[in-house]
């Protein structure tokens, strides 16, 4: 009776403390769990790795905001490092107005890290309203949709944009997507299905399970799922010798593991308490 009560009525403040502790301790004193690479993350890495400096630029859409930054920002930084290390030119844009600052921050930081030149190696288009109109418009003409870059300069004036007219000139599009507008609500129906552009995506773990039907059909070339996927991408970039920089998502994986374990134990305890109490009745 007492055990059932105890297990079934753990104070929520204890749950809060347990969760904080299992996250903080591995951050201070890492355990060093080694995970396994997901084939979906590897597929996207490979798709970017196959791009050549002579290719037309990679297009990255920053479709998230600060609320999902811990999951998606490390992906953005790793993909930029991967591209710049391979001298692949990059165009960055965003469909989420409040995420524009994150896109620019990552692009300027990583651009400086690899001594890349704005306009020659990368361009930041910023944000425009209209979502589907922006994505559809780019399929007809990128220059008509984004007449100027984020800084107000005509995009015609950048050497790397010469010959980049629409999706036909984009070998790969990567959308880092936290919801709507995102990979499944905008990019797949309006860019992939209509104009045939190759799309890869990095998503918050919340929406990762929804990406699987599109992976099976090949509509998505690869998937980075949440912070775990981001940590795998960081490791892939490091293993290939493209970067030795700090890996925030990888640092979090021990905490992530222990937090999952703690939540599972809590669910089990709750169930044990429930069934003991029910048997008593």
């Amino acid at each position: 009776m007492k055990i059932a009560d105890l297990l079934g009525k753990i104070d929520r403040r204890i749950i809060f403390i347990v969760l904080t502790v299992v996250i903080v301790i591995p951050l201070i004193s890492p355990i060093g769990f080694v995970g396994r690479l997901s084939p979906r993350v590897h597929d996207l890495f490979k798709a970017i790795d196959e791009l050549k400096p002579s290719n037309k630029p990679l297009l990255i859409s920053v479709d998230f905001d600060p609320q999902s930054m811990p999951e998606l920002y490390p992906m953005l930084v790793s993909i930029l490092r991967h591209s710049f290390a391979r001298n692949v030119r990059v165009i960055v844009m965003g469909l989420w107005v409040t995420g524009v600052g994150l896109g620019e921050e990552a692009l300027t930081t990583v651009g400086q890290e690899y001594q890349k030149e704005y306009g020659k190696d990368y361009v930041f288009l910023g944000w425009k309203p209209g979502v589907s109109a922006v994505v559809l418009g780019m399929g007809r003409s990128i220059k008509e949709t984004f007449s100027t870059d984020y800084y107000g300069k005509p995009i015609d004036s950048f050497p790397m944009m010469a010959g980049v007219n629409n999706y036909r000139d984009i070998p790969l599009l990567v959308t880092l997507s936290a919801g709507d507008p995102g990979f499944n609500t905008v990019w797949l129906p309006y860019a992939q299905a209509r104009f045939g552009v190759r799309v890869g995506t990095g998503v918050t773990a919340v929406s990762a399970a929804d990406a699987y039907p599109y992976l099976q059909t090949g509509q998505l070339v690869g998937l980075i799922d949440g912070m775990k996927g981001a940590s795998e991408y960081e490791l892939l970039v490091e293993k290939a010798g493209y970067s030795e920089a700090f890996k925030p998502a990888s640092q979090a994986m021990d905490s992530q593991s222990l937090a999952h374990l703690a939540i599972m134990i809590l669910i089990v305890l709750g169930n044990v308490g429930y069934f003991l109490a029910r048997r008593k009745k």
């Binding site: 600060p66 930054m69 939540i263 709750g270 169930n271």
Partner: peptide, 28 residues
């Protein structure tokens, strides 16, 4: 960077606590 990002990111992060608590209480 210093006002919008911390506020936005933290607002969603506290959901982890409530999700853990709700899962313990309701996931039977």
């Amino acid at each position: 960077n210093n006002i919008m990002v911390p506020l936005g990111a933290t607002m969603f992060s506290i959901l982890a606590y409530y999700m853990a608590s709700a899962a313990y209480r309701a996931f039977r």
